[in-house]
Protein backbone atom coordinates (compact mmCIF):
# COMPACT_ATOMS: atom_id res chain seq x y z
CA UNK A 1 0.00 0.00 0.00
CA UNK A 2 2.73 2.38 0.99
CA UNK A 3 4.55 1.54 -2.20
CA UNK A 4 1.45 2.23 -4.23
CA UNK A 5 1.01 5.65 -2.66
CA UNK A 6 4.65 6.38 -3.16
CA UNK A 7 4.50 5.35 -6.80
CA UNK A 8 1.42 7.43 -7.47
CA UNK A 9 2.74 10.53 -5.72
CA UNK A 10 6.21 10.27 -7.24
CA UNK A 11 4.63 9.66 -10.61
CA UNK A 12 2.34 12.67 -10.24
CA UNK A 13 5.21 14.86 -9.13
CA UNK A 14 7.38 13.81 -12.02
CA UNK A 15 4.43 14.19 -14.38
CA UNK A 16 3.75 17.70 -13.07
CA UNK A 17 7.30 18.79 -13.70
CA UNK A 18 7.34 17.14 -17.13
CA UNK A 19 4.05 18.73 -18.03
CA UNK A 20 5.22 22.25 -17.24
CA UNK A 21 8.04 21.82 -19.72
CA UNK A 22 6.16 19.75 -22.28
CA UNK A 23 3.12 22.02 -22.50
CA UNK A 24 5.30 24.91 -23.70
CA UNK A 25 6.96 22.68 -26.24
CA UNK A 26 3.67 21.43 -27.59
CA UNK A 27 2.15 24.93 -27.62
CA UNK A 28 4.99 26.28 -29.74
CA UNK A 29 4.80 23.31 -32.06
CA UNK A 30 1.03 23.48 -32.33
CA UNK A 31 0.94 27.14 -33.28
CA UNK A 32 4.24 27.67 -35.08
CA UNK A 33 5.06 24.17 -36.32
CA UNK A 34 8.48 24.47 -34.70
CA UNK A 35 9.77 21.54 -32.70
CA UNK A 36 11.94 23.69 -30.48
CA UNK A 37 15.09 21.90 -29.33
CA UNK A 38 16.22 25.11 -27.62
CA UNK A 39 13.28 24.62 -25.24
CA UNK A 40 15.71 22.66 -23.06
CA UNK A 41 18.11 25.61 -22.95
CA UNK A 42 15.30 27.89 -21.86
CA UNK A 43 14.55 25.42 -19.09
CA UNK A 44 18.20 25.53 -18.02
CA UNK A 45 18.25 29.31 -18.24
CA UNK A 46 15.18 29.49 -16.01
CA UNK A 47 16.85 27.22 -13.48
CA UNK A 48 20.07 29.23 -13.48
CA UNK A 49 18.44 32.64 -13.22
CA UNK A 50 16.17 31.39 -10.43
CA UNK A 51 19.09 29.84 -8.55
CA UNK A 52 21.12 33.01 -8.91
CA UNK A 53 18.23 35.18 -7.69
CA UNK A 54 17.51 32.88 -4.76
CA UNK A 55 21.15 32.85 -3.69
CA UNK A 56 21.32 36.62 -3.84
CA UNK A 57 18.05 36.97 -1.95
CA UNK A 58 18.95 34.67 0.90
CA UNK A 59 22.55 35.88 1.13
CA UNK A 60 21.13 39.32 1.90
CA UNK A 61 18.70 37.91 4.47
CA UNK A 62 15.66 39.32 2.74
CA UNK A 63 12.24 38.02 3.88
CA UNK A 64 12.30 34.28 3.26
CA UNK A 65 8.67 33.73 2.29
CA UNK A 66 8.90 36.22 -0.56
CA UNK A 67 11.82 34.19 -1.84
CA UNK A 68 9.30 31.75 -3.28
CA UNK A 69 7.99 34.43 -5.58
CA UNK A 70 11.43 34.77 -7.07
CA UNK A 71 10.96 31.50 -8.92
CA UNK A 72 8.03 32.48 -11.17
CA UNK A 73 9.49 35.97 -11.57
CA UNK A 74 12.77 34.54 -12.81
CA UNK A 75 10.84 32.36 -15.24
CA UNK A 76 8.86 35.31 -16.54
CA UNK A 77 12.02 37.35 -17.01
CA UNK A 78 13.76 34.57 -18.93
CA UNK A 79 10.71 33.75 -21.00
CA UNK A 80 9.96 37.29 -22.06
CA UNK A 81 13.53 38.44 -22.66
CA UNK A 82 15.12 35.32 -24.11
CA UNK A 83 11.94 34.10 -25.78
CA UNK A 84 11.32 37.39 -27.55
CA UNK A 85 14.97 37.75 -28.51
CA UNK A 86 15.09 34.28 -30.08
CA UNK A 87 11.83 34.68 -31.93
CA UNK A 88 12.52 38.18 -33.19
CA UNK A 89 16.22 37.70 -33.72
CA UNK A 90 16.39 34.32 -35.43
CA UNK A 91 13.21 32.34 -35.91
CA UNK A 92 11.42 35.19 -37.65
CA UNK A 93 13.73 34.78 -40.64
CA UNK A 94 12.98 31.11 -41.07
CA UNK A 95 9.19 31.01 -41.23
CA UNK A 96 7.71 29.23 -44.15
CA UNK A 97 10.62 26.83 -44.42
CA UNK A 98 10.37 23.10 -43.95
CA UNK A 99 9.71 21.70 -40.46
CA UNK A 100 12.98 19.81 -40.58
CA UNK A 101 14.89 22.99 -41.32
CA UNK A 102 13.21 24.67 -38.37
CA UNK A 103 14.16 21.70 -36.20
CA UNK A 104 17.79 22.15 -37.21
CA UNK A 105 17.63 25.91 -36.61
CA UNK A 106 16.49 25.35 -33.04
CA UNK A 107 19.14 22.66 -32.63
CA UNK A 108 21.73 25.25 -33.62
CA UNK A 109 20.20 27.69 -31.14
CA UNK A 110 20.34 25.02 -28.48
CA UNK A 111 24.07 24.51 -29.06
CA UNK A 112 24.70 28.23 -28.82
CA UNK A 113 22.62 28.68 -25.66
CA UNK A 114 24.23 25.71 -23.91
CA UNK A 115 27.63 27.40 -24.13
CA UNK A 116 26.24 30.84 -23.36
CA UNK A 117 24.85 29.48 -20.09
CA UNK A 118 28.27 28.04 -19.23
CA UNK A 119 29.99 31.30 -20.06
CA UNK A 120 27.60 33.38 -17.97
CA UNK A 121 27.03 31.09 -14.97
CA UNK A 122 30.18 29.00 -14.99
CA UNK A 123 30.34 25.22 -14.80
CA UNK A 124 30.14 24.75 -11.03
CA UNK A 125 26.83 23.56 -9.63
CA UNK A 126 24.46 26.23 -8.31
CA UNK A 127 22.15 25.52 -5.42
CA UNK A 128 18.91 27.21 -4.50
CA UNK A 129 17.59 24.79 -1.89
CA UNK A 130 16.14 27.41 0.51
CA UNK A 131 12.63 27.70 -0.98
CA UNK A 132 12.24 23.92 -0.92
CA UNK A 133 12.05 23.75 2.85
CA UNK A 134 9.97 26.87 3.31
CA UNK A 135 6.58 25.21 3.07
CA UNK A 136 7.33 22.38 5.45
CA UNK A 137 6.44 18.71 5.29
CA UNK A 138 3.16 16.80 5.35
CA UNK A 139 2.64 13.09 6.00
CA UNK A 140 0.65 11.08 3.54
CA UNK A 141 0.12 7.60 4.89
CA UNK A 142 3.43 6.89 6.53
CA UNK A 143 5.48 8.90 4.06
CA UNK A 144 6.68 12.45 4.59
CA UNK A 145 6.19 14.69 1.61
CA UNK A 146 7.50 18.17 1.08
CA UNK A 147 4.59 20.54 0.64
CA UNK A 148 6.62 22.26 -2.05
CA UNK A 149 6.28 19.14 -4.19
CA UNK A 150 2.54 18.97 -3.68
CA UNK A 151 2.20 22.64 -4.59
CA UNK A 152 4.14 21.87 -7.76
CA UNK A 153 1.53 19.28 -8.71
CA UNK A 154 -1.26 21.78 -8.08
CA UNK A 155 0.54 24.41 -10.09
CA UNK A 156 0.91 22.11 -13.08
CA UNK A 157 -2.84 21.51 -13.01
CA UNK A 158 -3.51 25.25 -12.86
CA UNK A 159 -1.10 25.97 -15.70
CA UNK A 160 -2.59 23.21 -17.81
CA UNK A 161 -6.13 24.45 -17.25
CA UNK A 162 -5.17 28.05 -17.98
CA UNK A 163 -3.49 27.19 -21.25
CA UNK A 164 -6.41 25.01 -22.25
CA UNK A 165 -8.97 27.68 -21.34
CA UNK A 166 -6.95 30.31 -23.15
CA UNK A 167 -6.94 28.25 -26.33
CA UNK A 168 -10.51 27.01 -26.16
CA UNK A 169 -12.51 29.75 -24.55
CA UNK A 170 -11.00 33.15 -25.26
CA UNK A 171 -11.14 35.36 -28.29
CA UNK A 172 -7.36 35.41 -28.69
CA UNK A 173 -7.39 31.63 -28.42
CA UNK A 174 -9.72 31.51 -31.40
CA UNK A 175 -7.52 33.83 -33.37
CA UNK A 176 -4.68 31.46 -32.56
CA UNK A 177 -6.79 28.57 -33.80
CA UNK A 178 -7.29 30.42 -37.07
CA UNK A 179 -3.54 30.85 -37.36
CA UNK A 180 -2.90 27.18 -36.58
CA UNK A 181 -5.38 26.10 -39.16
CA UNK A 182 -4.40 28.41 -42.00
CA UNK A 183 -1.63 30.90 -41.43
CA UNK A 184 -2.13 32.69 -44.71
CA UNK A 185 -5.88 33.09 -44.49
CA UNK A 186 -5.39 34.37 -40.94
CA UNK A 187 -3.19 37.14 -42.29
CA UNK A 188 -5.73 37.98 -44.95
CA UNK A 189 -8.31 38.35 -42.20
CA UNK A 190 -6.18 40.95 -40.47
CA UNK A 191 -4.63 38.76 -37.79
CA UNK A 192 -1.13 39.93 -36.92
CA UNK A 193 0.45 36.51 -37.18
CA UNK A 194 3.94 37.82 -36.45
CA UNK A 195 2.84 39.28 -33.13
CA UNK A 196 0.93 36.16 -32.17
CA UNK A 197 4.03 34.11 -32.91
CA UNK A 198 6.14 36.33 -30.68
CA UNK A 199 3.60 36.04 -27.88
CA UNK A 200 3.26 32.29 -28.32
CA UNK A 201 6.97 31.70 -28.36
CA UNK A 202 7.51 33.91 -25.32
CA UNK A 203 4.71 32.04 -23.52
CA UNK A 204 6.30 28.70 -24.42
CA UNK A 205 9.69 29.97 -23.29
CA UNK A 206 8.20 31.17 -20.01
CA UNK A 207 6.71 27.73 -19.38
CA UNK A 208 10.07 26.09 -20.07
CA UNK A 209 11.79 28.54 -17.75
CA UNK A 210 9.09 27.99 -15.13
CA UNK A 211 9.79 24.27 -15.21
CA UNK A 212 13.47 25.05 -14.67
CA UNK A 213 12.91 27.67 -11.99
CA UNK A 214 10.59 25.42 -9.98
CA UNK A 215 12.97 22.50 -10.33
CA UNK A 216 15.96 24.59 -9.24
CA UNK A 217 15.35 24.23 -5.46
CA UNK A 218 15.09 20.45 -5.83
CA UNK A 219 18.21 19.79 -7.89
CA UNK A 220 21.75 20.98 -8.26
CA UNK A 221 21.76 23.27 -11.25
CA UNK A 222 24.58 22.10 -13.51
CA UNK A 223 25.43 22.35 -17.20
CA UNK A 224 23.59 19.77 -19.25
CA UNK A 225 20.27 19.78 -17.42
CA UNK A 226 18.70 21.24 -20.53
CA UNK A 227 19.74 18.27 -22.63
CA UNK A 228 18.07 15.74 -20.38
CA UNK A 229 14.90 17.70 -20.15
CA UNK A 230 14.44 18.33 -23.84
CA UNK A 231 14.74 14.67 -24.73
CA UNK A 232 12.25 13.80 -22.00
CA UNK A 233 9.86 16.52 -23.13
CA UNK A 234 10.11 15.23 -26.68
CA UNK A 235 9.20 11.79 -25.42
CA UNK A 236 6.20 13.24 -23.61
CA UNK A 237 4.80 15.29 -26.47
CA UNK A 238 5.45 12.53 -28.98
CA UNK A 239 3.64 10.07 -26.73
CA UNK A 240 0.71 12.40 -26.17
CA UNK A 241 0.59 13.88 -29.63
CA UNK A 242 2.51 16.85 -31.01
CA UNK A 243 0.72 20.14 -30.66
CA UNK A 244 -2.00 18.94 -28.34
CA UNK A 245 -2.32 20.34 -24.81
CA UNK A 246 -4.43 17.47 -23.44
CA UNK A 247 -1.92 15.21 -25.16
CA UNK A 248 0.91 16.78 -23.23
CA UNK A 249 -1.03 16.13 -20.04
CA UNK A 250 -1.71 12.49 -20.88
CA UNK A 251 1.86 12.03 -22.09
CA UNK A 252 3.29 13.47 -18.87
CA UNK A 253 1.06 11.26 -16.76
CA UNK A 254 1.95 8.14 -18.71
CA UNK A 255 5.66 8.86 -18.68
CA UNK A 256 5.63 10.04 -15.05
CA UNK A 257 3.77 7.01 -13.73
CA UNK A 258 5.69 4.51 -15.85
CA UNK A 259 8.92 5.98 -14.60
CA UNK A 260 7.72 5.93 -10.97
CA UNK A 261 6.76 2.27 -11.29
CA UNK A 262 10.17 1.54 -12.76
CA UNK A 263 12.03 3.49 -10.09
CA UNK A 264 10.27 1.67 -7.27
CA UNK A 265 10.06 -1.80 -8.68
CA UNK A 266 12.77 -2.17 -11.31
CA UNK A 267 15.28 0.66 -11.05
CA UNK A 268 17.58 -0.72 -13.76
CA UNK A 269 15.14 0.16 -16.51
CA UNK A 270 14.31 3.71 -15.41
CA UNK A 271 15.97 5.64 -18.23
CA UNK A 272 15.14 3.04 -20.78
CA UNK A 273 11.46 2.62 -20.06
CA UNK A 274 10.46 6.21 -20.87
CA UNK A 275 11.78 6.04 -24.40
CA UNK A 276 10.51 2.54 -24.79
CA UNK A 277 7.01 3.83 -24.07
CA UNK A 278 7.48 6.60 -26.60
CA UNK A 279 8.87 4.24 -29.23
CA UNK A 280 6.04 1.80 -28.63
CA UNK A 281 3.39 4.51 -28.91
CA UNK A 282 4.95 6.00 -32.02
CA UNK A 283 5.33 2.60 -33.61
CA UNK A 284 1.63 1.91 -33.20
CA UNK A 285 0.22 5.41 -33.45
CA UNK A 286 2.58 7.80 -35.19
CA UNK A 287 0.56 10.90 -34.29
CA UNK A 288 0.77 10.06 -30.60
CA UNK A 289 -2.07 9.06 -28.33
CA UNK A 290 -3.96 12.30 -28.42
CA UNK A 291 -3.01 14.06 -31.58
CA UNK A 292 -5.48 16.29 -33.22
CA UNK A 293 -6.16 14.38 -36.41
CA UNK A 294 -4.52 16.27 -39.23
CA UNK A 295 -6.70 19.33 -39.61
CA UNK A 296 -8.84 19.01 -42.63
CA UNK A 297 -8.87 22.02 -44.89
CA UNK A 298 -12.38 22.71 -45.95
Amino acid sequence: MTTTIAIVLDGLLYAAWLFLVAVGLTLVYGVMRILNVAHGSLYALGAYVAAWAVQLWFANRLPAAAGLLLLPLAALLVGVVAGTAIERGVLRFTYGRHELVLLLVTYALFLILEDLVKLVFGVDPCFAYQPYGLLGVVRIGRLPYSLYDLVLIGLAVVVGLSVWLWLEKTRSGRLLLAVIHDREMAMAMGIDVGRLFTVTFAAGATLAALGGALAAPRISVVPGIGVEVIVLAFAVVATGGLGSVPGAMIGSLVVGLVRAVAVHLLPQVELFVIYAVMAAVLAVRPQGLFARAEVRRI
Binding site: H181, D182, G190, I191, V295
Partner: peptide, 16 residues
Protein backbone atom coordinates in the same frame (compact mmCIF):
# COMPACT_ATOMS: atom_id res chain seq x y z
CA UNK B 1 -11.68 27.31 -39.60
CA UNK B 2 -13.43 23.94 -39.45
CA UNK B 3 -13.69 23.55 -35.66
CA UNK B 4 -15.13 26.99 -35.07
CA UNK B 5 -18.83 27.77 -35.39
CA UNK B 6 -19.99 29.81 -38.35
CA UNK B 7 -20.55 32.85 -36.15
CA UNK B 8 -16.93 32.85 -34.95
CA UNK B 9 -15.66 32.34 -38.47
CA UNK B 10 -17.40 35.53 -39.53
CA UNK B 11 -16.34 37.41 -36.42
CA UNK B 12 -12.65 36.46 -36.68
CA UNK B 13 -11.62 39.32 -38.96
CA UNK B 14 -13.49 41.76 -36.72
CA UNK B 15 -11.82 40.42 -33.59
CA UNK B 16 -8.50 40.59 -35.35
Amino acid sequence: VPQLPVRDNILLPLWA
